[in-house]
Amino acid sequence: MTHAASVVVGYALTAAAVLAYAARVVRRGRSLGRSLGISGTGRNGDDAEHGREDRSGSDASRTPPGIEHGRDAASAAP
């Protein structure tokens, strides 16, 4: 392997590994938050508290799906 090629491979591998790990962490946080029903629409974090006590309600009933999706996209930024 030439010097330049090994540099390219080294930097690419490093970037890929760090990005993959970061993405995994953020994705896991998102899915956990969603399944806990506290993925927080931002406005009504209190719902989450209630949600945890009110076992009968579904997640969907607590967070309006439209808002969730809209905000979700916005929150894709770091």
Partner: peptide, 14 residues
Amino acid sequence: RQQAQRAGSLTMTG
């Protein structure tokens, strides 16, 4: 949760 609220964030970790 408070942090998420303040940030207007949906992801709990942001």
